[in-house]
Structures are given as structure tokens and as C-alpha cells.
């Protein structure tokens, strides 16, 4: 698998990262070398091996259904650049 400039442009758009045209080629090269490195792993025969999701054999921890959080409006909104009362605001979303 190999990425070209259009792929990089698309990925950047999806991630909302602004990229200048001049950066597309070097980024494609960089990403391709990473992919190439990962693809080496494909050479290992993993027939019958379950995907490993954690180094420690453990089950996902679960929480009881209790209200233990919330009511921290000021903390939650502390970094909001343009709050109105207790709302975040964003430039109008038109759909």
C-alpha cells in the first residue's frame, strides 16, 4: 500500500489539519515509510493467533450505575473561549 498526494490531502481534510501543497509530497513519503515499516509485520505467520488487545490478560473493568460525577459546570467550561451563560458557543452551524 502506498499513499499519493491526494490521499494525504484527503486524510488531512478528515483530520482538519491544514497542509500546504508543498508539504503533500514529503508527508506522503514519510507516511509511506511508516506504512512500509508496519507492513513488515505482515510477513509474520499469525495463522490461528488471536488478536492481542492488552499485554495483561484482563477483562474490561466496569463501573456500577451510580452518579459520582457531574455538576462541575465551571470546570467543564473553564477553557471555553466564548461562553454565554453556561453554554459553549461555536460559530453558527448551518445544515
Amino acid at each position: 500500500m502506498s499513499l499519493d498526494r491526494d490521499d494525504v490531502r484527503k486524510i488531512a481534510f478528515l483530520a482538519r489539519i491544514k497542509i500546504e501543497d508543498a508539504e503533500l509530497k514529503p508527508l506522503a513519503d514519510e507516511l509511506n515509510s511508516i506504512i512500509g515499516w508496519v507492513e513488515q509485520l505482515g510477513e509474520v505467520n499469525t495463522e490461528g493467533v488471536q488478536p492481542m488487545t492488552s499485554v495483561a490478560e484482563m477483562l474490561a473493568p466496569q463501573r456500577p450505575d451510580q452518579v459520582t460525577d457531574g455538576n462541575v459546570t465551571q470546570k467543564v467550561l473553564a477553557n471555553a473561549p466564548d461562553r454565554v451563560k453556561n453554554f459553549y458557543t461555536v460559530p453558527k452551524v448551518l445544515d
Binding site: 462541575v72 459546570t73 467543564v76 453556561n86
Partner: peptide, 9 residues
């Protein structure tokens, strides 16, 4: 009330 039932998560 707005943003009262919100944790940092």
C-alpha cells in the same frame, strides 16, 4: 440545567 450533567470525561 445546561452543562451541569457533564464530567471531564
Amino acid at each position: 440545567k445546561p452543562n451541569t450533567q457533564v464530567s471531564l470525561v
